[in-house]
Design a protein around this nucleic acid. Sequence first.
RNA 1: GGGCGAAUAGCUCAGCUGGGAGAGCAACGGUCUUACAAACCGUAGGUCACAGGUUCGAUCCCUGUUUCGCCCACCA
Length: 880
Amino acid sequence: MSQQEPAKTYEPQAVEPAISDQWLASDAFRPQHGEEAYCIVIPPPNVTGSLHMGHAFTFTLQDSLIRWQRLSGKETLWQPGTDHAGIATQMVVERLLDKEGLHRRDMGRERFLDRVWQWKEHSGGTIVNQLKRMGASCDWSRERFTLDEGLSRAVREVFVRLYEEGLIYRGKRLVNWDPVLETAVSDLEVQHEEEQGKLWHMCYPLADDPAQHIIVATTRPETMFGDAAVAVHPEDDRYKHLIGKQVLLPLTDRAIPVIADEYVDPAFGTGCVKITPAHDFNDYEVGKRHDLPQINILTPRAHMVDEEAVPEKYRGMERYEAREHVVADLDAAGLLHKIADHVHQVGRGDRSHAILEPYLTDQWYVKIAPLAEPAIKAVEDGDIRFVPDFWAKTYFEWMRNIQDWCISRQLWWGHRIPAWYCESCDHITVSRGTPECCEGCGGKGIKQDDDVLDTWFSSGLWPFSTLGWPDATPEMAKFYPTNVLVTGFDIIFFWVARMIMMGIKFTGQVPFRDIYIHALIRDAQGQKMSKSKGNVIDPLEMIDRYGADALRFTLAHMATPGRDVKLDEKRIESNRNFMNKIWNAARFVFMNRGDAKPDASFKPASEVNKWILAELDAVRAEVDQAFSEYRFNEAAGALYNFIWGTYCDWYVEAAKVALYGDDEAAKAETQVVMLTALEGWLRLLHPICPFITETLWQTLHGPDARLVSDAWPQPFGEHDDDAVRRMRLVIEVVSAIRSIRGEMNVPPGKRIAASIACNDNVRADLTAQQGLLMNLARLETLDWLAADAELDAAAVAPLAQAKVFLPLAGLVNVEEEMKRLQKGIQKLDGDIAKLETKLTNPKFRDNAPAEIIGKVQAELEEAVAKRADFMASMEKLKKL
RNA sequence: GGGCGAAUAGCUCAGCUGGGAGAGCAACGGUCUUACAAACCGUAGGUCACAGGUUCGAUCCCUGUUUCGCCCACCA
């Protein structure tokens, strides 16, 4: 059977799955021998996740780096895995249970966790499979999960060691409490949103003269039952006389003191603030300064407590229901002075979106300052480098003002805190394993803490826990510190900072050398993509429609450092066209290859062939440079320009002259070089577009060949500068002729006559390529003229080294050409004026480097000459 | 309130060390030229946000202004 002819149009759907299977079936993604190691740990996607454009973006960049380094001969590891994502996952499973009419509290912890694990086994692989579709070359045999055995051991090790050093402690403090999820969250998980609220002005009567009152302004009237004082500014003359007196808390029978504290801003509201230490962060601090009682009035679900502090009427009410009643009752009692509109910040939970409560609870904290200090220094000293570097500023800003980290969560899905409480004494046993008894008194009655750790606690260990820490594994020795972390700026605090702190603390080394921070993917209008807005572009849909390579190329091409990516489907479409262009260029090469094979050591004789190899070398250097600086857009751009603009537009067209000609030697040489160049740029493009390049590679080298495990191109050695110069000259002349043809509307197929006036050297350069020139410019005849010759009745294109004439006879009318010349002259006049001003400026002549002056001088001379040519041509036309 | 980023062609954006203003898409004109019409050839289009400053020279460096975006922050 004859081999099937490749389709005229590239169909990624037809080739990608098979290529993907080949890679996965082989060991291509496992670290292979190499002198140097190169490692990236994947930012573990949530196990609940499915691939969105942000993932597609970050993983494209990471895969490009890994494939580039792998081809370059490094021993590469891209360490994959997923994150258990405590709250997110628990919410997903709870929602599923809800449909079955089940609630986790009814099921109990064990049964609930069984269900979550079941869910994880069943659905947790989604994103990993999607990653594989993108072509991500992770070593899948090393896939990790933050809750698996090894990583859990690392978590316990870290917890115990920090506890033993006094860097983890338990304390009762005000935390951000999510009343829907009923758990504490960290400061970072609070989203501050500006909302339209009200400022209620409430009257608190004086105890010794109830006819008088002071007015407090508050955004939270329902918390008044937790009030412990009213505060005024010590220098506020309006209230100075009241300091130390008591006021009556309305709707209750309590009296509270008026205190003085500089926290109060006399200019805001009434200048009197109710102090509610158990329900407001500022008031908590004020309360501590004045030794005020902390009166809790809310349940974990933010209902009013059934306790003495709250009058019976309000007990059990939800917080906002209570608010309405309190306000109404105050109004009825004549104690509501006024209600003003007020815009203020409200803290919401980033998962539940519930309004958070400052809430007094026992939680575990990491004392962070001692960990932060060396982590700051590592970036200051350049042991870790942010790219772009301005992110370091953001990092420093946060790290230098860092607060202790609340790490306990009142959830079930996660690493359970390895602390046990004793029934008979106060001792807390913190242990790597499961203790038999209390370390303090030896009592057998111990019970483990119910809470789990913040998900980011385990993520913070990811770069070393995945490599086998706390054991001294070969992978730790070889791949740690890892080379680069690629991630978005949204998790610099959540994740990046914590990995740096934990990494330095527990391995004594930074976890990665470079941090490449990429931007966010937005929609074509610059809006953040979100399901609710309905503007989400689904990467899998894009892969279905245009292929993974088109998507990857688009993302890489748009990855300009530090700038958000506005993604328009049209861009993906046009890069799909690029893939199609590549497909067809390769198809042409295969159709015309004869028996030739690529040969990187081959030394061609023809200038066209020398030239393309030189250009290929140049683009290889460009791509290397771009990747090494994380300038993905430049790597992609250089490849696009070379493959389409140089190889396809010029080289393939030029090669046809030899391929279709009679000179067998020239033909054979061209076959080798066009294959060699194709082979070269397939390698260069592979990191960004692995599928199409692998497919074509196997067409080139046979079904057993694998580009994924092959090598980066080597330089071709010495270049023939003359060949490059001559080819560029040919391109310039051909372009000039095409330009006139286009403007004169000469049909592309029509062969015309041309004359070129130039000196002997240029003529020698051009005659060396005369056949090529005539072919590309579609010339019938080509005549040579003396350098200063003029041709009557011809359109002229003055170039730096030559004048090209196209006789008008039978081509165009004179008026068209006159117009064209006029336009050219006008433009040159402007250029000449500017250049002359510059050159006649003595300051410029005195100060500018000779090189620049020479350049400007040359530009001026060229412009003047061109103008003269145009003028001369015009004069002649006028005579006709 | 503090900080960061951005402003370049109709649209989306490159422009890395100060000396040429560029690409893709869209538009317009011409082409089925034996790899590709998802293509080819060509044309047009910009006061580089504004105002100053430094410099022989500024899209680029500095200062200020305006607009947009983001992050951080306890004004009840």
